[in-house]
Design a protein around this nucleic acid. Structure first.
Lengths: 263, 263
DNA sequence: TGATAATGTCCGATATTTCAGACAATATGA
DNA sequence: TCATATTGTCTGAAATATCGGACATTATCA
């Protein structure tokens, strides 16, 4: 229920107009999520359009959030974006969350040892999300901005993050358009399901040339105490890998993820 | 106690009239600020007490914020703290804010060059706040957690952050109890005002043994285009400094702050 | 240049939300 | 053991914040 609601509020630009009038707190959350999705400063009017709220309401809310420094002016023409208070809330989260705290160091050492981009990823709604990343030493870098949502079928991690669902649930969970890769190619649902199953069996997932032309992505799950997947560690390398290189990287990645998993 | 805490919640704003009923959005903000001040997970009931809100209202709001992942469960006994969404909002701020982005690198190089703790600080309400810090190489480290509010008279930066106020305004601005140093010693208001004036004249401020027994703190202002103080850069060293050492550190600090100031 | 579309602010009515208090279920302590 | 305090959940009703729309300004563009 809440999942569906949250998912639709995140993905749906023009969600069905359910009640005539929405709760204030929901509007506040919608404003913040809209800004995060847009990933750049917006004007109050734009935000109102994007969340389907009356302009007057949106101005009211934005102004109050500005006062609290949760938002701040950003840009010369009345745009707003996240403010200092938001920053401090985020720091507080990172400091307090044991997993997150440990992830930083692990990513750093992975990036240093492999020269690749190392990332910590998780599920959010029905999308994949990079929560933390460290770039390797390589000249060419493959980056996904932290906080940007990406369709699950586009990523190696996506094959690991669905282990709590069965085949039918996965079909229902992922919107059909997400099976169209950024290259324009259509990924077959059956193939994806097979890959999800294989990933669960093997305990890792490797994909090639999915998002970018020349990139291999290796992902392994970080597990909670109950065995469910809390997130993934993943390495992105701008190259084909021979079997031996692949093994080497997995031999670094798997212990790293085990170290982060609840014992 | 709860009233005191609630009233002090952001000093200056519209503290005056408290109607028996508060806006939902204000309650949301109060909840988030209470958690940030407390700097640790809290239960819904505790939060209610700390912000002076009815318990039922507080539960309602906390539950909605949990759904949005702005808060998340933290601790075995129903405590909550900032969640993943808060983290992403904070990252978004840090990525978008030009000053903040540049500060990271500058602090790093200051910490590396001096071996001291380097911090980026600003004014928030009538308190001093560390927004970013990098620790030096030294064995003994002097740290203030990011996001913790500290009375202005306790810090070197505090002498620089008040340049927009005149003497009388400063007297009104800073609560009397803030002139009691953590050592228990009472700082005279006149002396503080003299130091503020000196800091403005010199363009830097150095304090000794204010917060901790063996620490010298050097701070210089980062200026906005209009000449007002946007924040400070500061170095904390666990030692007395002879004039020459002091000069050396200032010669690193001052250009660093100029580099960050709007040209 | 005039016509059209946005922007930011303000207002009154009413649908929604806050609040107080009751409640059962636990925790705490004498 | 009983008495007392605390927790999390619900409820109805009063109070207010949301909403639609109007209003001047300011952009945009034919």
């Amino acid at each position: 229920m809440s999942m569906v609601e949250a998912a639709s509020s995140r993905s749906g630009t023009k969600a069905a107009r359910e009640p005539d009038r929405q709760r204030g707190i929901d509007r506040v959350i919608a404003v913040l999520e809209a800004l995060q999705r847009h990933h750049a400063p917006m004007r109050a009017g734009e935000i109102a359009r994007s969340i389907g709220a009356p302009r007057s309401t949106c101005y009211e809310i934005v102004n109050r959030l500005l006062e609290a420094e949760i938002l701040e002016p950003a840009g010369a023409e009345g745009q707003v974006y996240f403010g200092r208070a938001s920053y401090l809330f985020g720091r507080a989260y990172a400091e307090n969350n044991a997993l997150h705290r440990r992830v930083g160091g692990v990513l750093e050492s992975l990036a240093a040892q492999t020269g690749a981009m190392a990332q910590f990823c998780a599920l959010r709604g029905n999308k994949y999300l990079v929560l933390e990343s460290r770039s390797g030493s390589g000249l060419f870098r493959i980056t996904v901005d932290v906080g940007v949502e990406v369709p699950l079928p586009w990523t190696a991690s996506g094959r690991l993050l669905l282990s709590h669902l069965d085949a039918q649930e996965i079909r229902d969970f992922i919107p059909p358009e997400d099976f169209v890769l950024p290259t324009g190619e259509q990924l077959s649902v059956d193939q994806f399901l097979a890959e999800v199953e294989a990933a669960a069996r093997e305990g890792y997932s490797v994909t090639r040339n999915l998002v970018d032309i020349f990139a291999t992505c290796l992902a392994v799950p970080i597990l909670r105490q109950d065995g469910s997947v809390a997130g993934t560690l993943c390495l992105v390398v701008p190259a084909e890998l021979v079997a031996e290189q692949r093994r080497e990287l997995l031999d670094l990645l798997i212990p790293a993820a085990r170290q982060l998993s609840a014992h």
